[in-house]
Write a protein that binds this DNA or RNA. Structure first.
Length: 354
DNA sequence: TAGGCCATCTGGTCCT
DNA sequence: AGGACCAGATGGCCTA
């Protein structure tokens, strides 16, 4: 249920159709003409514009009026205005201002599109991804936070990802519908929706749950990070201990309450980069995901998933990642993890990173 | 119909 | 001067 893009563009079309565009055409892509702002003070959408340095002709007139006011009503000279004298809004200046504004709007739009693309990529690696039922921005971020948190808990405390607690962590602070969605995905395992997801990414018959390899944990070829939803495969999640029915129809007081409660206190850091991880990992350094069994490759498996998501999330803000990595001992641990993960053959994206 | 979510425009601020 | 980023404002769409 994705909404069409450029809704404001519709407004501009309306404006265009009403013939309110500037003659030079500088009001394209939803821009409102200075005339509209100046003369009416309110635009098509009813927006009130506060004129500061806007290039309206009225502004120019206002300035001139102000200058006249300095000569008092009875002819006496009033106090001179202090500070630098305002530049006059000449026609040329107005046009430059307008052109600058149009360019800035375009940049801002593309910036936001970039942000949305990144968010879309993030949605794709969430436990419940659906083209038709998109998570909202805020819910995507919350779920990502929870997911990283939950996976790191699995690594640190050895908690089973099949436990009720794992699901609870995933749903913490999420709205009721999102909680239900997540719970539904976890309970149902690889639903048709998830199969679609795999096919969307790697094409039909390529890897994935329904792919040629047949193994539930054989991920599709590179591109996006290996999808973490392998951990949601039926063999893991259908038999969750203590996970009964639509749990979130009846949420516990602390978890998954209705609405979108504010973030209630600091969580465990998304992924604790501590020596422990590496040590746990070393138990089966040569484990391949294809040969993964829940017992022998437990930590390697979930470590790789956590790292995939971790890196992917940070990939969105790559600049921040770099400063983050070079800022402390993390760089050492990062490389150590990289080496270990390489042995598992499950860190394609990781390698691309380096 | 109210509320949630979203895209867009805009002005301000900071930085190069 | 101009670009990046941010937050506020606004209207449109959708759903309960």
């Amino acid at each position: 249920m994705t909404k069409p893009f450029g809704k404001s563009g519709d407004v501009s079309e309306l404006v265009n159709s009403l013939g309110w565009l500037e003659e030079d055409g500088s009001s394209q892509d939803g821009e409102e003409s200075p005339e509209m702002r100046g003369r009416h003070g309110m635009t098509v959408g009813g927006r009130i514009r506060i004129c500061t340095e806007l290039g309206s002709e009225d502004m120019e007139e206002e300035e001139e009026e102000d200058e006249e006011e300095e000569i008092g009503p009875n002819g006496e000279k009033g106090p001179k205005r202090r500070g630098p004298k305002k530049k006059k809004m000449t026609k040329a200046r107005q046009e430059r201002f307008r052109a600058r504004r149009v360019k800035a709007n375009a940049r801002e739009r593309s910036r936001m599109h970039g942000l949305n693309d990144a968010l879309d990529n993030l949605r794709r690696v969430m436990p419940c991804y659906s083209k038709t039922q998109k998570l909202s921005k805020i819910e995507t971020l919350r779920l990502a936070r929870n997911y990283i948190w939950a996976l790191s808990e699995v690594l640190e405390s050895g908690q089973s990802p099949e436990s009720h607690g794992f699901v609870e962590m995933l749903c913490k602070g999420l709205s009721q519908p999102t909680s239900n969605l997540v719970a539904g995905c976890l309970q149902l395992g690889p639903s048709p929706m998830m199969l679609n997801k795999l096919e969307d990414k790697c094409g039909p018959g390529v890897g994935g749950v329904g792919g040629q390899t047949g193994h539930p944990l054989s991920y599709p070829s590179p591109g996006l990070p290996s999808p973490p939803y392998g951990s949601l495969e039926a063999s893991h999640l259908l038999h969750m201990k203590g996970f009964k029915g639509p749990v979130y129809d009846n949420p516990s007081p602390n978890e998954c309450s209705s609405g979108t409660p504010p973030y209630d206190g600091p969580l465990t850091p998304p992924l604790s980069i501590s020596g422990n991880f590496a040590l746990k990992q070393e138990a089966s350094p040569h484990e391949s995901e294809r040969n993964y069994t829940p017992h022998s490759g437990h930590h390697a498996h979930y470590l790789s998933k956590a790292m995939h998501l971790f890196i992917f999330v940070f990939n969105i803000y790559f600049d921040n990642v770099l400063s983050f990595l070079y800022s402390s001992q993390h760089i050492f641990l990062f490389h150590r993890l990289l080496g270990l993960l390489s042995n598992t053959g499950s860190c394609t994206v990781f390698k691309l990173f380096i």
